[in-house]
Amino acid sequence: MPSETPQAEVGPTGCPHRSGPHSAKGSLEKGSPEDKEAKEPLWIRPDAPSRCTWQLGRPASESPHHHTAPAKSPKILPDILKKIGDTPMVRINKIGKKFGLKCELLAKCEFFNAGGSVKDRISLRMIEDAERDGTLKPGDTIIEPTSGNTGIGLALAAAVRGYRCIIVMPEKMSSEKVDVLRALGAEIVRTPTNARFDSPESHVGVAWRLKNEIPNSHILDQYRNASNPLAHYDTTADEILQQCDGKLDMLVASVGTGGTITGIARKLKEKCPGCRIIGVDPEGSILAEPEELNQTEQTTYEVEGIGYDFIPTVLDRTVVDKWFKSNDEEAFTFARMLIAQEGLLCGGSAGSTVAVAVKAAQELQEGQRCVVILPDSVRNYMTKFLSDRWMLQKGFLKEEDLTEKKPWWWHLRVQELGLSAPLTVLPTITCGHTIEILREKGFDQAPVVDEAGVILGMVTLGNMLSSLLAGKVQPSDQVGKVIYKQFKQIRLTDTLGRLSHILEMDHFALVV
C-alpha cells in the first residue's frame, strides 16, 4: 500500500459497493488471473465517493441489488447463522422517566444476534452475496479491517462455511474481542490505534497488504460494500417497522461504517417519512454534520465500534436529520445504567446512543415513540467499562463513588512517597548505550525526554532486548525507535489509591 493515498477510480455505471474482489474501477472485475494482476490496485480507499443510485421515491424494481426479506425461524435451526436477525424490541421503562421523557422509549437489542452484535447481519450478508456472485469459493481466505464486531461476525460465518479468516484490528480494541476471535479460529493482526486510516500501518493498510500477498484472499470491505446497508434496509428496518406496527417518530443510532443508519433510515424514509433520524458520533470522530460539531482538541476516545477519521463510502449522511456528539463518560455511564436499571447487557456504544436519545427525544410528546439501536453486548468489555477499576483509572468514576473498604494508605498523596527525580535518556542515544546505562543503574525503564525536557515516551529494558533479539533494531539504532509513546501519567497530588489502580493494569506510571 502506498504512503500517498491515490484516488480510487470510478467506473461508468453500476453501484460502487459490489461485493467481491475490487477492480481499479471499484466494481467486480472478471477475466484471467493475468488481467486481474495487471488491473487490481494495491488498495482502494474506504472513503471513495459513493456511486449508489438510491433515491427517495425511486421504484424498488430499479435497484441493481439482490434483495432479501426477513424469514421466520424454524423450530430447529440448521446452523447458528440462522440465529442472525429477528432481534427483540424491548421497552426501556426507567431511564426515559428518569430523564423526563414523555414518549415511549424502545430498544432494538442487536446483541441477541448469534455473534453478539449488529455486525453479524452485514457479515453474513457480505459472505452470502460474495458466494452468490462467485467471488468467494471453498478454501478462500477472508481478510477484514475491523474494530472487532464485524470480525467476530465474519469469523463466526467463516467457521460454519469453512473459510480461512484473518482479522486486522487496532490495538485499542478489547482483549475479549481478541479472545472470541481466536476461539472462532480467526487469525488476528493488531495495528497502532493512532495510525491514520490511509497510513500503511493502519488496520485498513495492513489488511490490503495481506490481501496482495495471500492468494485467493478477499477483503469484503464493510466500508464500501453495498451488502452492509442492504442488510439493514432489507431486514433490520423491516423488523423495526413490523415490531412497531409502522408507528415510530424517531430513530437514534450510533454511527461507525454508517451501514446501520443508512440502511434503516432509507427504508424508514420510504415507509415512515415523518420519522426523524438521529445520528450519534463520538467526540474525536469526524462523521457528524455540520462540520463545526467535529471541532475539538480530542483525537482519541475509548468507546469502541463507532466514529472514524474518514467518511466511509457506505455512509449516506443525507438521510440523517440531526447529529449529536457523545463523550466517553456519558457513554459508559449510560451503558452501566442500562445494565443495572433495565437488565440490558449492552456495550458502550449503546450507552452513547441512549445518552443522546434522552436529549433528542425531549421534543417528542406522549403517545409518540423513539427507537434506539443497541449494537453489541457487554461480553466484549468485561475488563473495560464493566470494571470499576478501569473506570477509575480512566477518570470516568471517582473514588467516592465506590463504597468498598480501602487499605490505610489509600488516600495518601503520591508526594508522600518522597520520590527522587528519575533517570532520563535522550532519544538520540543508541539502544546499546541505553541498555548499558539501565543495567549500570539497576533500572528496568526510563523516560525519554528531548533537550527541552519534554517527555516523549518510555523505554524499557525488556522491550529493547526483545527488539534486538527479533532483529527489529540494532544496538547502533537510536533509542527513539523503541519508545512507548502511550503511558499513564500521575500527579504528586493524586492518591496512592489512584496509582494502585493504574499499576494493576500497566507496568509503570510516570509522575509529573
Rank of each mutant, 00 (worst) to 15 (best):
Q7A: 09
G11Q: 01
P12S: 10
P12R: 13
C15W: 09
C15G: 09
H17L: 11
R18D: 15
S19V: 01
S19I: 07
P21M: 09
H22D: 08
H22E: 14
K25C: 12
G26L: 11
G26Q: 05
S32V: 08
S32F: 07
P33D: 08
P33I: 01
P33C: 07
P33T: 07
D35L: 05
D35C: 04
K36S: 01
K36R: 13
K36C: 12
E37Q: 06
E37S: 11
A38S: 14
A38G: 09
A38F: 15
A38T: 13
P41L: 12
L42H: 08
A48L: 05
P49S: 12
P59F: 01
A60C: 08
S61N: 01
S63Q: 01
S63W: 01
H65G: 01
H65A: 01
H65P: 06
H65C: 01
H65V: 04
H66P: 07
H67T: 10
H67P: 01
T68Y: 06
S73N: 14
I76A: 06
I76T: 04
I76Q: 04
I76C: 07
I76V: 04
L77A: 06
P78V: 06
D79Q: 09
I80H: 01
L81G: 12
L81H: 09
D86L: 05
D86V: 14
D86C: 06
P88H: 11
P88I: 01
V90P: 01
N93M: 01
I95Y: 05
I95H: 01
G96R: 13
K97L: 10
K98S: 12
L101I: 01
L101P: 11
K102A: 12
K102V: 01
C103R: 04
E104C: 10
L105T: 11
L105F: 11
A107F: 03
K108F: 01
E110M: 06
F112W: 03
A114L: 06
V118G: 07
K119R: 06
R121T: 14
R125H: 09
M126G: 04
I127A: 10
E128M: 14
E128H: 01
D129A: 15
D129I: 01
A130L: 05
A130R: 08
A130G: 11
A130D: 14
E131R: 01
E131A: 10
T135L: 15
T135F: 09
P138D: 01
G139S: 09
G139F: 10
D140C: 01
D140L: 03
I142L: 09
I142M: 08
I142G: 08
I143F: 04
P145W: 06
T146L: 06
T146M: 04
S147T: 01
G151M: 01
I152L: 04
A155N: 07
A155M: 09
L156W: 15
A157G: 10
A159G: 01
V160H: 01
V160R: 13
V160M: 08
R161L: 03
R164G: 01
C165I: 04
I166L: 08
M169L: 11
P170H: 01
P170G: 04
P170M: 06
M173L: 06
S174D: 01
S174N: 04
S175T: 15
E176N: 01
K177Y: 01
V178N: 01
D179Q: 01
L181R: 01
R182S: 08
A183S: 14
G185S: 05
A186I: 08
A186V: 09
V189F: 01
R190D: 01
R190C: 01
T191S: 01
T191Q: 01
P192V: 07
N194R: 01
R196A: 08
P200C: 04
P200Y: 13
P200M: 12
E201A: 03
S202G: 01
V204T: 11
G205C: 13
L210K: 10
L210D: 01
L210S: 04
K211S: 05
K211C: 05
N212D: 12
E213W: 01
I214A: 06
P215D: 12
N216Q: 08
S217L: 04
S217A: 01
I219S: 06
Q222S: 05
Y223S: 01
S227A: 13
S227V: 01
S227G: 01
N228R: 01
L230N: 13
A231C: 15
H232W: 04
H232P: 01
Y233C: 04
T236E: 04
T236Y: 01
A237T: 11
D238R: 15
D238I: 07
E239F: 04
L241V: 11
Q242G: 14
Q242M: 14
C244M: 07
C244T: 05
G246V: 08
G246K: 09
L248M: 12
D249K: 12
D249N: 01
L251C: 08
L251G: 01
A253W: 01
A253G: 09
V255S: 01
V255T: 10
T257D: 01
T257Y: 01
G259S: 11
G259R: 14
T262P: 03
T262D: 03
T262H: 10
G263L: 01
G263F: 03
I264L: 10
R266F: 08
R266P: 01
R266G: 06
K271D: 04
K271L: 09
K271T: 11
C272D: 15
G274V: 05
R276I: 07
